[in-house]
């Protein structure tokens, strides 16, 4: 039984995008991930991230609990309409000119080893907007914490998933945040809150639609 552990006001958060999102469709796009990243960037992390422990950031979102000690943030997965499926290429050319000058080796194999040439093609999807439903404990703090989030998805350092504007608007759908994976013993292992990739965050979940 999922319950909301702390009160919050329903809001709709919208990101306007000007670049395709890389690797968007392998996992749900969860807003507490970028929010936790922003909090860490701003020095709000209560401790270091280790393989055994992931610190929880103080996010301005209500929390849900499942009664068995598993909890997460009350925010839906991103809702969006893909307008085109595409791919992006990222190249990594070995610095062979510099190697020729500064390294003593006779050869460099372009297709083997950690320093090989790479031409990586990643799936990407175009969407004009990403929309999340959430329960927030402080709408202004939420809007402020979104400001450093300038990109969503992979390859953001190379410009993909660029967000030009964020809007946070009050809404009247208090259960809409539940459109996300939530704990269910019959489900498959998934992350329940940021950082979603961390082993300590994995629990059996199924997708709920309120």
């Amino acid at each position: 039984m999922i319950t909301v552990a702390s009160g919050g006001e329903p809001v709709v958060v919208t990101a306007r995008l000007t670049e395709p999102i890389v690797d968007a469709e392998r996992h749900p796009i969860m807003l507490d991930g970028p929010l936790a990243w922003a909090a860490a960037q701003l020095g709000m992390a209560p401790g270091p991230l280790t393989p055994e422990h992931a610190p929880d950031m103080p996010l301005p979102l209500a929390r849900w609990e499942d009664g068995d000690g598993v909890w997460g943030w009350c925010v839906s997965a991103a809702i969006y309409t893909p307008t085109r499926h595409t791919a992006v290429q990222l190249r990594r050319k070995p610095a062979t000119a510099a190697m020729a000058r500064y390294a003593p080796d006779r050869r460099h194999h372009l297709a083997l080893g950690p320093h090989k040439a790479r031409d990586t093609t990643l799936p990407a999807v175009w969407a004009r907007y990403l929309v999340w439903h959430a329960l927030t404990t402080d709408i202004n703090q939420l809007a402020d914490l979104l400001k450093p989030v300038t990109h969503i998805g992979k390859a953001h350092a190379a410009g993909y998933g660029r967000v030009t504007t964020w809007t946070v608007m009050p809404a009247d759908a208090p259960d809409a945040w539940m459109a996300r994976p939530l704990p269910d013993r019959a489900g498959i292992l998934q992350g329940v809150r940021a950082p979603y990739w961390h082993p300590t965050r994995r629990h059996p979940c199924t997708w709920r639609n309120p």
């Binding site: 050319k93 610095a95 510099a98 190697m99 390294a103 320093h115």
Partner: peptide
């Protein structure tokens, strides 16, 4: 830097950002 005095991995680190070369769970 003298020509021939850096390893290929060092050149790769400076010009391409390096690469993961071992496994481990300690940061």
């Amino acid at each position: 830097v003298e020509p021939g005095s850096l390893s290929k991995a060092a050149v790769d680190l400076l010009w391409s950002g390096g690469a993961i070369t071992s496994t481990g769970s300690q940061v």
